[in-house]
Each structure stands twice: as C-alpha cells, then as structure tokens.
Design a protein around this nucleic acid. Sequence first.
DNA 1: TTTTTTATTTTTATATATAATAATCATTTT
DNA 2: AAAATGATTATTATATATAAAAATAAAAAA
Lengths: 300, 300
Amino acid sequence: MNVQSYLIQETVNGILTEISDFQEGEMLVLKDNTLAKKLKVSRTTIRTAITELETKGIVEINGSHKQVLRSPNSSDYFDTSNSVSSKEEIIEKYFLDLINRGKLLPGDKFSELELAKSSGCNTITVREFLIKFSRFGLIEKSPRAKWQMVKFDEKFALELVEFRRILEMNSITQLLAVPEGDAVWSELSELLDKHLAVLEDVENRYTELSELDRKFHFIVQRASDNRFFMQFFDVVSLICHYHYQWNKGDELERNKVALEEHVEIITQLLAHNTSGVIIAMETHLNTAKKTLLRSAHGLE
Amino acid sequence: MNVQSYLIQETVNGILTEISDFQEGEMLVLKDNTLAKKLKVSRTTIRTAITELETKGIVEINGSHKQVLRSPNSSDYFDTSNSVSSKEEIIEKYFLDLINRGKLLPGDKFSELELAKSSGCNTITVREFLIKFSRFGLIEKSPRAKWQMVKFDEKFALELVEFRRILEMNSITQLLAVPEGDAVWSELSELLDKHLAVLEDVENRYTELSELDRKFHFIVQRASDNRFFMQFFDVVSLICHYHYQWNKGDELERNKVALEEHVEIITQLLAHNTSGVIIAMETHLNTAKKTLLRSAHGLE
DNA sequence: TTTTTTATTTTTATATATAATAATCATTTT
DNA sequence: AAAATGATTATTATATATAAAAATAAAAAA
C-alpha cells in the first residue's frame, strides 16, 4: 500500500480524534462538509482521508452515507512525528543544520544541485528556499554563479549590532509601558527563575543560554507590537546565533556573563526602574557587540 | 535566423566597441581569454559571440585564429534598449505596473498561473519573483492557496509609520554628523533647488514629488551607512508609494505640503540646526502618517 | 613556464508534465 | 430554503528535461 501524504495522514488522525469517543452501537455519521470546516482542509482531502478510514475498517461508506463502525485504537493513528510536512521543511532543516554545525562558513560557495542531492530534494525546492532565506542577508548570489555565504567582516557585525540596538532599545521602552496586570510580567518572572536555575549549575547547563536568549529577546521585541520589528527579530537572532558558533573557546564564561546580564535586565524590568533597564540593556548590547566583533576578527 | 539571447547580444556589442578603432589593413587578432576578462563573461559566451561576428562578416575564424576583417558600423550593433535581460525583469515590471495602476488592491487574490499567462512568463519565474517580493510584506499566501494582497488596515499603517520614524530619525542624526566637505551636502542643496523649481510651478509639476521624495529619503537613509537600514528603505518606500496611489482627491494640496516640508528639512539640514531638523522631520513624518491613515480608512 | 585553446563538466535558467489539494458549480438531500 | 454531495475545474507542489552560461581540466601554443 502506498504511503499517504503528510496532510492526508494528519487529516486521518484528526478525524480519528473527532470520533474517539464513539460508543459501541451508537449511530455516528460523518459529514465531509462539517469535517472540512473543523479540520480546516478542503473536502477533497476529507474524502481521501475517509476512504483511507474505510480500508482500515473504521468507517463504512455507502454512497454518500459514511458511518462509523468502531471506535479507533491507538494503532489506527499515523505516526507523523518523524515525517515532514513538505520538502521545504526538509531542506530548511538540512540547511540550518549545515550552518549550525559550522559546515558552511563565511565566504564558502555552494550550488543548488549539490544541496538538492545531499538533502534529497529537487533543485527547485532548494532554489526557492534559498531565495526566501536570502532575505536574512547571510547568503547571496549573482546570476548563473554559485551561492555564497556572505563574508562576515567587522562592518557587517557593527551594522547588525547597531540595528539591533535601535530596535531593542525602542521595544524595551514600550515594554516598560505595559500595564501591571499583563501576562508579560509573569512570563518575565518565570524567565528570571529559569535563568537563576541555569546559573546555579552553570558549568553543566551553560549551553541552555541559546534558548533563553532567544526567548528573552523575543519577549522584548514582541512588546513593539510591530510586524516590521518582528521580521527583523528573526533576522538578527539567526545571524547572531550563527556567528556565536565558532568562538567555542570562552563559551562558558561568555554565556555566564550573558545570563547574568539578562538577570539584571529582567530584575530592573520587574522593578519598573526605567533608567536601570536602559543601563542594563546598554551593557548587554555592548557585550554582545564585543563578542560579535571578536568572532568577526577570528575569521580574518 | 534565430534571435540571440540578451547576454550574447550585449557581448557582441561589447566586442564591437572593443574593435571600433580598427584601421583598414591593420592586423587585429581576438583572444577569447582577454575578451572574457574585459567583458566579465565566461569564455563560452565570448565564443558564441565571435561566431555571431563571423556570420556578420566582421571577423574571420581560422581554427583558433580570429582576425578582424573590417571596422564595425552602427548597423552591426544589436539594439538591446527594448529587450529585457531576463524573464524576471519582465514579471517584475509587469507586477509593479499592476500595483501602480491600482489593478491589485488590498485583499485582492491572484494566482501564479494567471500572472504567468498574462505576463508571458512561466509559472516558476512568477513564483520565484513572488517569493522574493513577499519580503516587502505586501503579499502573502498560505499553502496551496492563492496569493493575496495584504489587507491594509490602520494597524498596518501605524506599524509602518512607527518603524519608519525610528529608522529615519536615527539616520538623520547620523546625517547631521557628516563633515562639512562631504558630497552629500552639495547633493542636498541641489535637491533643494529642484524642490523649489517644482514648487514654482506646482500646479503642473506636483506629480514630480514622488521621485523627489524617494531621492530625499534615500539620501537620509543612506547616511546610516547600514545595510539593514537600507533594506528597509526599499520596503517602506514601496509600500508608501503603493498606498498613496488611491487618494487622488487632494493630491495637489498634499504634494505641495510634502514639498514644503522637504524644503524646510533640507534648509535646516544645510544650516546644521539640529533641533530644527528634528522638529521639521517630526512634522513631516506626522503628515505622512495622517495621509497613510486616511488612505487606510478610505479602503474600509 | 606561462598563456591560450579545445573539450568536457557543472551549474543555473527555463519549460513542461504530473500529482496533490483546493475551489467551484450544479444537483440532490434534508 | 439550507445544507450536503458529486463531478469538475483551477491551482499549487513536485519532478524531470533541455538549453544557456560558467567553470574546469587537459592539451597545445607561445
């Protein structure tokens, strides 16, 4: 039997969940229109999924009449945890992994075909992904030439840091204006606890900074409530993360400092101490700048 | 005879220019290696172009020996002024034209195939262009659904204006710090003259604002000397331009005000009056905000 | 030895075809 | 009349093929 597509599998699982409380002897009829609305897919998809359920013996189809025969058990569900919804996800994962493992360094060249072969996608999927990804300013190409990782020099680093400084300073001011009862304050105090927990055992847990850093800056940027700011959150976040990869040398010490700086900012935020927040943030961004510059120089 | 591609035509023209000072009886031999370096194309391209020159009777090919026979006349050159270098340029022109003529309004849907047919490109070219263009935040799509012009509501407008305000305020501060002798100051005073000229005959020339506006804000943003800022100059510029299209009602009055505001900013800039610049810029951005908001409301 | 050329291989750009999914419209059922 | 369905059409996603251009490597010439 041929393997169904991800969407069909997910839809089958969705229908199974819908009918999971079916009782023996009950009269349960499936309407594709209703299911389509509920699962937010087209009726065509629902019908393919119901046909699949018929072969599983869970549903009986009699013309337009689709009746549930038995309640589903766990083996009826498709395991979609390991599948990917599309080729695009495959190449995205594959490419980001290359970056994160330092297989693609600034100045490196690579071709679409090469990526397509090694990732198991076709060239068009790869190409479209690269076009989309080029928005981050990390890769570029000229017509009929190979793609190239952007050379990461001091100027690039300084521009990035300056841009980030302006966006974050603005957002954090907005954040300070958020009223007391808002959910963001409990989010922040939770985040503070997590930071403290990691700091307690920093020798073993210092690598968790990466995730906390992303979360922290996400909360800050989100306060701007501005889609253009958020667009750039992704860009800056990715690029910074990318370049932190290579200074493994003093990673423990560096991460410890960053964690402590986060703690200071969040504490000042929770105390609603405007000038304290600004100063702490300024310090943090300056440290980040130094780190980034060092990583830029390390590559020359 | 089949029409050569744009690149070949341009290369032929390039070689013709190279040998344009050929004298009767002179011994002029073409080396593809040298030409390739000079014209910045590959040797493959040079060889195709030289073959073309042989059929035109300008060059004689004897194995590896390529000798110029006569000096080229103007009819030997290809007219590439009307051709486009690639399909991508076609679709880009076509799509921007649709936008500018108000054929694509917020909320409108359109399909790749539709665009491909009407523009004469294939779907892949269209698709890749749309992916690239979606970076501007003006169009979006969900999987297997049509593309859609983003609904332009008040929130969108406010976010855009706020983002612009932060970027431009920062850039103009940088601009003020540029030393006296820099070329930017003469650029600005030229731009001031152009503004004044248009204002002299504003009833007939008010449509020239669009170009002056782009130039002015470009000079301001460029002062940031930051690629991330510049990326967004394009985005903001396009979106604003797009949305100004529809309030044709008070266009004369509106453009006149904008021109006068530009004059004020540039004057203050040339006088190096920091606070004056800030105030004038603030006023200008507020006017732009009002205009944009009115255009957002007009669409509801 | 260095440069140039020929021949070959890679790579991107473009075109076309098929499959999967969504949307539509006329008809039937409720 | 409203909702649901079947049949059809439209559209995107994916795959494959061909052409144009660039890059490379080995051979030839300077």
